[in-house]
């Protein structure tokens, strides 16, 4: 695997001959901001630039970065919900970056999403049954009866009772709602599961449950996982390999344990050292110390 043009990325990865689940080549996405002046061109924001990456089948890949680092934009492009302004994206060997939405039908049962906000990701006016069956309806899979059976099967697979199907989203807690989200994502039998900060909006006590659920379904359904988070400690729990993203670029891509044990890029080192540590907390080094440490490392902030 060759280095990207920028040359800054620290890469440590295995070479594989198989067709990767997701292949990104020099992907960039620019956004035009509103024009500020009549005579000057509108300013451009480079949300994602020069991202090159292969995610192998069955891999659990994490993308970490602070908010505004471009990880969500990258994710939307991987899911075919947005198009890159440069570069190419292939999912299971088929290009998606230059296809109109109408020709991405196959992608919709190959790749599915779980969202961050359990309040906004389920339509408040729909019953759980219809929410979970939505991908099946959209893709015209199965008859009414077959869908009903499938919904029950999926709800049970994510640890919800069958009678949840007749209730509305507001009758569930945040963690349960994320379970519904996962059930919906599994409905069309995808090969790739993309999770956009799936536990960031949850209480700490519920996080572990949802992370374990994602862990289980990735194992049980043989999925490739792309997991985005701003929290390294969460990524560590589920991912084999992690990319650290900053200002639209990957600064380091490495197997998880290596990244934690031996972060190479200064930004990664900063992130790793900012993970709350039980021993440090017991030693009396509180959040204030961490805050000071962060401030010292990034004087511009």
């Amino acid at each position: 695997m060759s280095e990207v043009a920028s040359g800054e990325v620290v890469r440590s990865e295995a070479v594989s001959s198989e067709v990767p689940a997701i292949r990104l080549q020099d992907v960039g996405r620019d956004f035009r901001r509103p024009r500020r002046s009549l005579t000057q061109a509108p300013p451009v924001v480079h949300a994602v630039r020069g991202v090159t990456l292969d995610i192998e089948r069955g891999e659990r890949f994490g993308i970490v970065g602070e908010s505004g680092s471009g990880k969500s934009t990258l994710l939307r492009m991987i899911c075919g919900l947005d198009r890159p302004t440069s570069g190419s994206i292939e999912v299971e060997g088929r290009p998606i970056h230059n296809q109109p939405a109408a020709r991405l039908g196959w992608l919709r049962h190959t790749l599915q999403l779980v969202f961050q906000d359990p309040m906004s990701s389920l339509d408040p006016r729909m019953r759980v049954r219809d929410i979970v069956a939505e991908p099946l309806v959209a893709q015209g899979q199965g008859s009414g009866a077959a869908r009903r059976a499938r919904v029950v099967e999926l709800l049970e697979a994510v640890g919800l009772s069958a009678d949840s199907a007749d209730r509305y989203p507001h009758q569930f807690s945040g963690g349960q709602r994320q379970r519904i989200s996962v059930a919906r994502a599994l409905a069309p039998g995808p090969d790739i599961l993309v999770a956009d900060e799936p536990v960031s909006a949850l209480d700490v006590s519920v996080r572990a449950q949802v992370l374990n659920l994602i862990d289980d379904v990735v194992d049980g359904f043989d999925l490739t996982l792309v997991f985005v988070s701003h929290d390294l400690s969460v990524v560590r729990h589920v991912c084999d390999r992690v990319a650290v993203m900053r200002q639209g670029e990957f600064v380091e891509v490495a197997p998880t344990e290596q990244l934690y044990a031996d972060p190479r890029h200064p930004y990664t080192q900063q992130l790793v050292s900012a993970i709350p540590d039980l021993h440090a907390a017991l030693d009396g080094r509180a959040a204030a110390d961490l805050a000071r440490a962060v401030r010292e490392r990034s004087p511009d902030a």
């Binding site: 109408a102 599915q112 999403l113 961050q116 990701s121 339509d123 006016r125 939505e134």
Partner: peptide, 24 residues
């Protein structure tokens, strides 16, 4: 996000308008 989810599920704009936008 539920509209994004509907797009990711494969619904076209017309279905999204009827299933999600109109009821809400």
């Amino acid at each position: 996000d539920y509209v994004t989810a509907a797009r990711a599920a494969g619904h076209g704009p017309f279905a999204i308008a009827l299933r999600h936008v109109l009821p809400n």
